[in-house]
Write a protein that binds this DNA or RNA. Structure first.
Lengths: 174, 174
DNA sequence: CTTGACGGCTAACGACGTTAGCCTTAGATT
DNA sequence: AATCTAAGGCTAACGTCGTTAGCCGTCAAG
């Protein structure tokens, strides 16, 4: 049973707001995630949002929490081997490009995160690497690099990214 | 002799502006790179900048060009082996974190780039990979992932990133 | 019946990118 | 020499952004 701290620690109204914020982000990208646009979507005015969140960063923090929780779930589901775990990571990231970017572009606000969440998201990878943190970090870096370079349009349009992925994933096995 | 298209195609005044923009970015980060702040630094008013660049994106494009050129130079210098080339990449990126982020976060505006620049920046890596594009892309993804996750504070503070780097770099050798 | 929390609202501020329109300077053209 | 033009400044202002101040209605608990 997945622990969803978002469900616990947020009031219902806050959760509604976060849900709409997420929809706005995923549908139209980070530039469209505006306090006014979000308020519109909720049928209220922008200043009213500040009755629930102190600022936009606090709202985005909840999106980061959400993304971390879902990543953890995705990795826990497909974590029988390193390749399958990495594939699960990639699949989740590519399925939620804007959320993934929001999560990874800023620096992680560790003090404000639910306790243990970061560790929980990292655990499946660490386990499948037999506790070798260096290997785990290197594999993460590769997976993140592949995904984010693709999302940011840094590879040529005709590049075969699945092939590059396989090449990299193979390198991390032996 | 390094080809610096920035030197060729930009008027002297434009080059001064780009130079100050770069300094502002590198010293105080992307949030500080404001048309008004940049103008202040040049002793002029913000609207005057639009006599030289159509918009902020055009200015940032020149910073991307600069970063790509310097990356190409850095890679051409230390390109005798894959590990040394990757190390050169990492060294450059960590030495210019804000410029590197600006370069890699947005999607690459290929139509507006000097012709051949992207290929030139990629060439050393492709060559050292013996033309194996999949291997080259995988290695790039790993290097970028390591660097950007570090710059974005995504690794724990006590993580030994040099060790993780070595682990990953070794994986790409065999 | 009152009180206070909850959750809306309007008006406004400062910073941002940007546009319109004016003016000076200096070199080139006639 | 007189004139035209391009370069490169300027001020004023607009629309959008996040955000703050302050007001008001609703409604459950004392």
């Amino acid at each position: 049973m997945p622990e969803r701290s978002t469900t616990d620690r947020l009031t219902p109204r806050k959760r509604e707001i976060v849900t709409e914020a997420r929809a706005l982000l995923e549908e139209h990208g980070a530039a469209a995630l505006t306090m006014r646009a979000l308020a519109d979507r909720l049928g209220i005015k922008a200043p009213s949002l500040y009755k629930h969140f102190p600022d936009k960063a606090a709202l985005e923090l909840e999106l980061v929490v959400l993304s971390l929780e879902e990543t953890a779930e995705a990795l826990e589901a497909g974590s029988d081997s390193l390749p399958s775990l990495m594939k699960a990571y990639r699949t989740y990231a590519l399925a939620h490009p804007h959320l993934y970017r929001l999560n990874t572009e800023r620096s992680l606000p560790r003090e404000d995160l639910p306790e243990g969440l970061e560790a929980r998201a990292a655990a499946p990878l660490v386990r499948v690497c037999g506790g070798d943190m260096d290997a785990a970090r290197a594999a993460w870096a590769f997976a993140h690099g592949m995904v984010i370079l693709q999302l940011n349009g840094r590879f040529p349009d005709d590049a075969d990214l699945s092939a590059a992925w396989e090449t990299g994933a193979d390198a991390f096995e032996g």
